[in-house]
């Protein structure tokens, strides 16, 4: 028993060294050399300034910007230091009320929008950091953004399609629009 305890102790120490120390260290080293951009958070740097990460969404509620998925992080939306979903269940009255508030905000920013309201634009994402919306949600907002910026709807629509990603390899995932990149492009266009 005592021999076994000694063996167990040493085994834990050795395996900790290999799997807990050397393994992450090696991966970090190789990752920093091969994929420095991705390994450090896929930052979007414009004029030497970090304008966000291409993987992490940001909150928008001004009419001139496309709005992303609602976010349930605290204390503010898209808090990338504390990811969180709402965890509200489908029969929970709180969820229904929250969604109603989001619908009202969208409707009051663009009162007689004839398009159907896509579900992903009024439901919180799982991470609270989702950088994407569905193409339908982008299409829904084109009119509002064009009016707020006094731009042609077709010009905005074209920018949207430039920032729409298809399925990976044509099969995997869902088509999606990158909200932050699209909004940055809108601002650049306006300059």
């Amino acid at each position: 028993m005592l021999t076994q305890l000694r063996q167990a102790l040493r085994m834990l120490a050795v395996l900790t060294l290999i799997t807990g120390f050397l393994y992450p260290l090696v991966i970090t080293g190789v990752a920093q050399v091969l994929f420095p951009q991705q390994a450090n958070g896929s930052l979007m740097v414009i004029d030497g300034q970090g304008m966000g990460s291409s993987l992490i969404g940001q909150p928008f509620d001004a009419p001139k910007y496309f709005w992303g998925r609602p976010s349930a992080t605290a204390p503010f939306s898209y808090n990338a230091a504390a990811s969180s979903g709402s965890n509200l269940g489908p029969t929970n009255e709180t969820l229904i009320k929250t969604v109603q508030i989001r619908i009202d905000a969208l409707k009051s920013a663009d009162p007689d929008n004839p398009l159907p309201l896509p579900v992903d634009l009024v439901t919180a994402s799982g991470s609270g950091l989702d950088p994407h919306i569905s193409p339908a949600s982008a299409a829904y907002q084109v009119r509002r953004v064009a009016r707020a910026r006094k731009m042609e709807e077709d010009v905005v629509r074209q920018l949207v399609s430039q920032h729409t990603e298809g399925r990976q390899l044509g099969i995997l995932g869902e088509p999606r629009v990158h909200v932050l990149a699209l909004n940055l492009a809108l601002d650049t266009q306006a300059k």
Binding site: I96, Q100, P116, V122, A136, E174, P175
Partner: peptide
Amino acid sequence: AFTALGIDQASGAGQSGGNMEGKETRFG
């Protein structure tokens, strides 16, 4: 309840639809 609020949950060319609360757009 979402259908009653007038939300479009049908899958189509522009969205995967369905119950998207707590789900990520890229995964659908």
